[in-house]
Structure formats: structure tokens, C-alpha cells
Computed example of a mutant assay.
Amino acid sequence: MEFRGLRRTFGTTVALDGLDLTVAPGELIALLGPSGCGKTTALRCVAGFETPDQGAVLLDGEDITRVPANRRDAGMVFQSYSLFPNLNARDNVAFGMRVRKVPTARRHARAAELLELVGLPSHGDRYPHQLSGGQQQRVALARALALEPRVLLLDEPLSALDAKVRVTLREEIRRLQLSLGITTIFVTHDQEEALSVADHVAVLREGRLEQSGPPAEIYDRPATPFVAEFVGTMNHLPGRLSGDLVEVAGQRLPVHGDRPGTPEVDVLVRPETVLVTPGEDGDALIVTSSFRGASVRLLLRLGDGTEIVADLPGHDAARFALGGRANVRLVERPVLVAARTPAAAAEAVSA
């Protein structure tokens, strides 16, 4: 599947501004970005619910940009479950097959097969109001798969569910996608969701592609400050450029990516790349400590007043007391820098 120079406007609002993106066959790609970045509009252009002003959508090499939605061979799952309240789960799954006049016995057999696939083999006779939110979304997923589409489109399908159900269902979606080998586009604004289920993540900003790559690359090697801040938590530390290096927190580190035109910069540093050791004569004060089970998050204040967030293994929590002192160093690895923003220089920004 391919997006070629997609542009879509709504009045004076530009939803897509020349989007170029390729999705490999059988791949699950997550479109990630803040509200209004164009990710749902891109999905709707694939589904046929929106027609781009410019550009093209290709599926298996075929230009489907102006093919009617009912002829695109795409299955879609929405944020709202959109089940028919007067139909039971089996008939909801079989609805598309009924529209296509598939014989009754065949569509019932297919619906039963799909309900088993999504873990609801005994729920076929239940109506939507008799199902939990997670179960309703499983039925919606089975319905989208009923006609064996060439591409599966998921528009924030988990956002209406509670946290535990979301984790379980996203793992089920990934398992199903891998077993069926179906090309899938998953729209979400949840970074953890995108990183955990996708083969590739495409980060959108103001209708354009900011960066695309495997989840580990997006997280560990963000191409721009925007990607770095949106995906994960990021410290902003005051630094000063000196050639290909930046001076930050008493260290000189290599710079990755573009450099602003001024020597005074913000240095972007992940909390897990902050090394902390307790020490009575340490240069940092432990301001807060948040235990998170597998990890502990410390907020420390350096001697110059700069605050920095560090993530350490949870078993280290007892080593760091509030009000205590600690030594802080940064892992020696290339860092991103951005133009200095006074408000960000003394605080960590969470995406």
C-alpha cells in the first residue's frame, strides 16, 4: 500500500499536506501523532470515506483513490464499536456477507469461525448490550475480517476501553494480524500502543510525515525534536554547542541531527540515559521519587537549579531517599538539540 503526495483540506484547514508513505504487504503500521495531525484523514482516504484533493492511494499497485468505498476490499474498525443493537454477535459479524448475498449456512459458519478466532466462540447469540466493551470491539474486529479484506483499517479501536482491557486486546489484535498476514494500518495517539503492536511507526505532524521506521528506531533514534518529545518522556537540559559537540551538565556529548543557528540550545535526554548514584557529596538533590514497580522515577535538582528526570530499576528505590544527595551523569551517546526555550530549560516534558 502506498500514499503518494496526499493532500486534503477542509476549508482553510490542511489535514494532509503532501503525505508520502509506503506500507509493505502483511505489515502492521501505526500512524501516530497528536490530534489534528491527519492520521484519521489518511485512514479515511484509504477506506474511501474521504477523497484527497491531490495525490493517490495505491493498494497492491492499483490506484484506488476514486474507487467507491464498497469496492475497495478494506475492513474497518472504528473507535466506537458501531454494532447493530438489534442483531446478535453472530449476525453482526455476518452482516457484510448477508449484503453480498452469501448463502445463510456459509455465512453462519464463517461468523462462528471468526468469533472463535477472536476468542468469543460461545457469544454468538448475545446482543451488544450483553457484551462488555472489549467483547464488542472483538465482534467489530471479526466483522471487519469477515469478507477477507486486502487491508485492515483500525481507527483508534482501543481508546474507549479501560487500561487493562486495552493491553489485552492490542495483544490479541497483533496475534490475529500476524496469523492472518493481513496488511494493517492502526491509527492511535497513544505512543505505548503504537510501539508495542507495530512493525513500523509513522509519526505525523500537521499533515506531513515527520519520521517512519521500526519502533526501536523511532524511540532510540528520533529524527527530530518533535518525534523525540512526542514518543516517550524527554528531559530538556540547557547546553552550549561547540562544533560537533554540546556541553551539557558538565559533559561534552556528540550531537545527532540538525543544529539550531545559535550556540545556546536545549539538549534532549531520555530519563533512562541518566545515570544516578547515591553520594553524600553529590551534585544533585533528590526532589521526588515515584515508585512504578519495575522502575523508579527520580526528579533531581542539579547545582545550577536545572531539574532532571531519571528512570532507574525498581529495586534501586531504597537507595535514594527524598532530600538526599546523588551524583548524576549522562550516558555518552549522541543527543538531539533544539532551539532554547526558556520554559523548557528547567523541566522535563512528558509526551
Rank of each mutant, 00 (worst) to 15 (best):
P278G: 11
D266C: 11
V287M: 04
T288A: 10
D258L: 11
R259W: 02
V265S: 06
A228V: 04
L253P: 10
L237E: 04
H236P: 13
T288P: 09
D281F: 06
G279H: 08
H256G: 05
T262W: 10
R297K: 00
T306I: 06
D281V: 12
V267T: 12
R252M: 06
R297A: 03
R252A: 15
D244F: 11
M234V: 15
L268K: 00
G305S: 04
R252T: 10
P271K: 07
D304V: 03
R240G: 07
L298I: 03
R252H: 10
F291A: 06
R259A: 02
D244G: 13
P271T: 09
R297G: 06
E307C: 12
P260E: 13
S290E: 13
L298M: 07
D283N: 10
L245F: 02
G239S: 11
P263Y: 14
S289R: 15
G257Y: 11
R252D: 09
L302W: 00
G303N: 14
P260C: 13
I286P: 00
V269Y: 09
E280I: 11
A294T: 10
I286L: 04
P263V: 15
V274R: 04
E307H: 15
P263F: 13
D266T: 08
T233F: 05
R297C: 01
V274P: 01
E272Q: 11
R252C: 08
D304W: 03
L300E: 09
F291S: 04
S290V: 10
D281C: 10
N235S: 00
S242A: 14
A284C: 12
T273A: 00
V255T: 08
G239C: 12
F291P: 05
L245N: 00
R259C: 01
D304M: 03
P263H: 13
L253K: 14
L245C: 01
V248W: 15
D283P: 08
T273R: 07
H256Y: 06
E272W: 06
V265M: 07
V231Q: 07
H256E: 01
L298W: 02
V276E: 05
F230P: 12
T233S: 08
R259S: 02
H236M: 09
E229H: 12
L275D: 08
F230G: 13
V296H: 08
V287A: 09
G261C: 09
A249R: 11
L237C: 03
T288K: 08
G243C: 08
V255C: 07
V265R: 02
T233M: 01
N235K: 05
R252P: 06
L285S: 04
G279F: 04
H236N: 15
L245R: 04
A228N: 00
V248D: 13
V246Q: 04
S290N: 07
P278N: 15
F291K: 02
I308C: 02
E247S: 12
V255P: 07
P254C: 10
D283E: 15
P260G: 14
A228I: 06
D304T: 00
S289P: 01
G282Q: 07
L237A: 05
S290W: 08
G250H: 12
S295D: 10
G305V: 02
L245P: 06
R297Y: 05
L245K: 06
V276W: 04
R301L: 04
S289L: 12
R270Y: 13
